[in-house]
Design a protein around this nucleic acid. Structure first.
Lengths: 127, 127
DNA sequence: AGGATTTTGAGACTCGTTCTCAAAATGCCG
DNA sequence: CGGCATTTTGAGAACGAGTCTCAAAATCCT
């Protein structure tokens, strides 16, 4: 069988992610873990992140350097507004993309499965 | 001074990009260049691609494995519909995102600078 | 506590990308 | 043309994020 263990590394990672409304890279996560007195190996950080993403509990995003970054994630389809100054992320409900979908269907004959939308700018406290 | 030279590698790369409505990775580009009898080193491929992207003549996209891919690019802001089967890319004019922008302003106090939107599905010939 | 099972960590490894620097190509000017 | 300053190229070294390996440690169950 395949039971799941609750371990110190996993809890430490989940705790940091939950407290931070930003996408963190594996390296940043490692640093925070070290600072907070619970060092965790890179391998474990990656494994845990992959696990969380698979369970839908973390969102994965590739930053502009192609590095994987993660953020704790509520369920449900939505998009992100990312502050280019502090990195804070706000969720934006998804809707009103009908115009685009229609355009795709009629103009291009495209069968839409999926989309991704991301906003960049400055959050309230960074303006 | 800094003059620009017209060279065989640069022309070969531009020719391949212009003929292909898909995002190509540096590796794929290298392979095509080899096939077409104009081998170009990786270093040069990356340098040329970076140059084209800076001049706005090529679009850069990170694929889901974090690899940089490039496609020749008309100017003007628009988005892409990418066929998950053949990779063909169709341009989609940008508009009607007002609903989102409004929501961001009023709900989150977010000052929007920029956004990116990508559609995935199947193109006419792959459905 | 004992033991089957899962998880972890250190470091080797992979692979995309960047860097280095000597050799080759380009364009210019006499 | 032919020489020359300048730019570009290529081979391979270097770098870095991410993955893999496997023995040691942790977890949970009884």
């Amino acid at each position: 069988m395949e039971t799941e263990y609750e371990t110190r590394p996993r809890e430490a990672i989940a705790r940091i992610l939950r407290a931070e409304p930003r996408f963190l890279s594996a390296a940043e996560l490692c640093a925070r873990l070290e600072e907070s007195g619970t060092p965790v190996s890179r391998a474990t950080v990656y494994r845990t992140l992959e696990r969380l993403a698979a369970k839908g509990e973390a969102a994965l995003r590739l930053n502009d350097r192609g590095e994987a970054t993660f953020m704790s994630c509520d369920n449900g389809h939505h998009h992100h507004a990312i502050c280019r100054s502090c990195g804070r992320v706000e969720d934006v409900a998804c809707g009103a993309l009908d115009t685009f979908v229609d355009r795709l269907r009629s103009l291009h004959g495209f069968q839409l499965d999926d989309h991704s939308l991301e906003f960049h700018g400055k959050c309230r406290s960074c303006v």
